[in-house]
Structure formats: C-alpha cells, structure tokens
Design a protein around this nucleic acid. Structure first.
Lengths: 237, 237
DNA sequence: CGTCCCGTTGAGGCGGTTCAAAGTGCGTGG
DNA sequence: CCACGCACTTTGAACCGCCTCAACGGGACG
C-alpha cells in the first residue's frame, strides 16, 4: 500500500547539508533503525541497484561514494546526487527504484530493510515525521541543483559544485580546502548539465585564474574560497 | 523542533500527477485535515507568502493557480512549480518559507494550520507517512523538471511543459487538448530555464509546424499530441 | 609495449541570449 | 466611445557561450 505511493528514490541527507551546526546527522528515531541492517561492499562501477529494480532496502553509505542517476532511452543521463559516507540512499522508492545507484569506487553500505522501516513508521509517528523531514531536505537540495543547472553558466555551476563538495568534506571531518573528487568528469558533467569538455575547460580556467589548484585531476585544492563563493552566487559583476 | 528541521517549501501534489488512474487525489488521513481550515482569496500577482515569511499554514488551492518560485539576489528567478486546484502549497517549510508563492490570477485557497497537522502526525503515524509520500512525489516531480531543464533543448522543454499542463487539465476534469495557460511567458521561461523570447519563438514554431494552435497567446490547442510527445521524449530523431 | 580509459586542448558551428523595436490586448480616464 | 498608457507578446538581427568533432596526453593494466 505504501509501495504504490512512493515514486522517487531518495539519496537524501541524514547528512543535512546546510543545516547550521549539524555534525550529528542522523535524527534519533531514524538513527536507531540505521544501526541495524547488513553490510555489503561494492566495487567501483558496480551498481547497488538499478532503475526498475524492486526496492527492498535503503542503504547508508559507510565508506566510499555513490552516484545516483537517471537515464533517458536515448542515452542522456542526469546525475541527481553524489552520496557521501553518512548519507542515505534509496529512500522513497518502494515499488521499484526510479533511479540507479552506482558505487564510484569500492564502497561499503549498510542495507536497512524497508519493510521494517515502514511498519514502525505506521505505529510510531515520530519515525514517519523523520522520514518526511529527510525527504524534505532532499527536495530542498534538488531544487538548489535545479536552480544551479537552470540559471547559472558553466563557471558558476562548477564553482557551486566545488563549494558543495567542500561543505560535505567539512561535515565529514575532512579538509574542506583540499579533497579528492570521487567522481569522474563525466559524472560531474551529467550532474551539472554540461559536457565533459566544458567541465574540463572550466576546471582549467579556475586553475589558471588561481581560484583552485589541481596537482592531479582528481585532487582539488581551494585557493581562493572567497572568489569561488562570489562566482557561485552572482553573475559576473 | 520540527520547525528547525524543515528546509523546503513544498508545492507538492496531493494531485499525484503521473500516478496511474488517480482522480481522487487527497489521500485519506490527509484529506480529513484538508477539509478544515479557513478560506482566503488572493488577486492576481498577490503573494500568498514570500521567501522568509514565517510558515504557519499549508494551502490547498481551490480556485485559480499559484506560481511557486525562488529568487537570487541578482534578480534571476527559478519557477519551481505551478499549483493547480487540488494541489497543496507550502508543505515542508515550518520555520520560514524558502520559496515564494504568488497567485497568477484571482485565486481561492484554503489554509491549514501547520501546528495541528504536525501534532496529529506525531501521534497518528498514518498522517506522517502520508506527508512523507506527498513530499516524495514532489521530489519526483522536481527531478523530472531537473532532467528537462538540464538535458533537453528549447523545443523539447516547451513540448514537455505543454504535455504536463495537458495532463493536469485532464486530471482536473478539463479538456486536455484545449486549455488556457494561467501563467505568463515570463513564468514559463523562468520555469524552463529559457528567456521569454525563446519561449515565444518556440511556441510560434510549434504553431507553424501545426503541432499546436494559438488563437490567443494564452489559449493552447494541442493539434498533434503524438508529435508533441515524440518531441518531449527523444532528441530529434 | 600496446590498449583502454580518462582527461585535456583546439577549431568551428549552432542554439539560445541579448538588444531593439513593433504588435496586441486591456483597463482607465477624458 | 475613443485615446492613451501599460504590460505582455512577438519578431528581427547580431553575438556569444557551450557543444561537437577531433586529436593528443597520461596513467593503469594486460
């Protein structure tokens, strides 16, 4: 009965990116459930689930990173989110998954059976509310991405992307100014609605302009955070 | 406590666009609550609420249409959704609204106090679950829009937009092949991530190519639904 | 050492934007 | 009732940012 109502996968955020002062991400009622579940490990490029698969679990990322995306029959792809450790993946898709989830590298996840989650939610209102909040945050994030893709140019998009990754690293207790990009240029391109060439050129441009450093193509150092933020927020001037 | 957790407004769909055979939109537990509430009427261009306002109610659109949007300081705007009669507006924003909601013409809405909604949800798990489902559907819709804006060209976007409106009209028991657009070209442009000129040119192109008819600029008649659907789905060929 | 995958760089074309102007519908006041 | 103003839409012309196509470079792996 719930099954037919859910239409979307959710790689949302127990994380709560952009909630102020939030380092203990998983909300109480939910957190209890998330401690259960069985651990599975996926290699890079391996799929945790695919569009159309029956959805039986949600997954908490413990180690590694997951790319959530949707395909169009003609091959066009939209990357919807990148899940970092602590993030929850696959919520909101009971009948069948509407997105695919692919590990970008060796990734360990904890699978929580959806059945138990929903059973509890029906009797304990608090969990239902928590799920609601969780999806609301995911919705907020998706609208932010919509704004970025719809209104900003290539430079602004890449700047906003880097800052978002930086914030996630900070949340996870890593260096927010020097981090490894766990996804390919192709993933970034399909996330931002650009081509890999444009993404590559924009990275180069940011490096030449001394806003970032790229000793390796996957290793980003933010040199001028201020300027990057200015780029991401306003158009040019 | 809930207040701090919600981050997003929701102009979601009790509507359930794209749920198969769904004409009785409001799900039971939710529907009861929605029968309560006080009615208010807004003129065209009037705001039901603005970004930053304290969020005290959700609103069910009864008559008219509402445009949900977000602004950037530099004036760029992203329209997130158009709410039709039967749609719910403002869910998911307890502390303060993160979007603005503006009536596109004289509009009657029914305001439901959030306080009562959340109180009930905490004790009755079913309502919480319903809210969860509702936001999940909204998330699904936003991802669909993200895909459209990110991956499709102007012609495909406008075609997809017209088909979406057509489906909404059908759901509301109106003619799906001839309908009035309750929003301006500017609203459509900011929804699809285009300029008004491009939207206008694309409409003209669709008219010249005999896919639609435009006796007045707001009155759309779908002439070749087949071709329109082909346009919206695949790229050219 | 060759192959494959990924990232980078270059040249050229095109779709959508920008800037500008004319057209259309509608309410308001003379 | 008509004239006017205003907001919205349409159309045109020129420009530009991103895409497309193509080639090259570098690291991983057999």
């Amino acid at each position: 009965m719930l099954a037919t109502a859910f239409t979307a996968d959710t790689a949302y955020a127990v994380r709560g990116e952009d909630r102020p002062n939030n380092r203990a991400p998983a909300p109480d009622a939910l957190a209890q459930r998330l401690a259960d579940g069985t651990v599975r490990t996926f290699e890079g490029k391996e799929h945790i689930y695919r569009e159309g698969d029956v959805a039986a679990h949600v997954y908490v990322v413990e180690v590694g990173h997951v790319c959530i995306y949707k395909m169009l029959p003609d091959g066009r792809r939209q990357v919807i989110d990148f899940a970092y450790p602590g993030d929850l993946v696959g919520l909101g898709a009971m009948g069948e998954h509407k997105c695919s989830a692919q590990a970008t590298s060796r990734t360990r996840v904890r699978g929580i059976p959806l059945a138990s989650l929903h059973q509890i939610a029906r009797t304990d209102g608090r969990l239902g509310v928590k799920l609601y909040e969780a999806v609301s945050r995911e919705l907020q994030a998706t609208r932010e991405l919509l704004f970025t893709v719809s209104q900003r140019n290539a430079m602004e998009r890449v700047a906003a992307f880097l800052l978002a990754i930086s914030r996630r690293c900070e949340r996870n207790g890593e260096d927010p100014l020097e981090f490894v990009l766990p996804m390919t240029r192709s993933d970034i391109a399909d996330f931002l609605g650009l081509t890999i060439e444009t993404v590559s050129r924009t990275f180069t441009r940011l490096r030449v302009d001394r806003l970032i450093d790229l000793s390796q193509s996957v290793l980003v150092t933010i040199v001028d955070h201020e300027a990057l933020a200015r780029l991401a927020e306003s158009k040019g001037h």
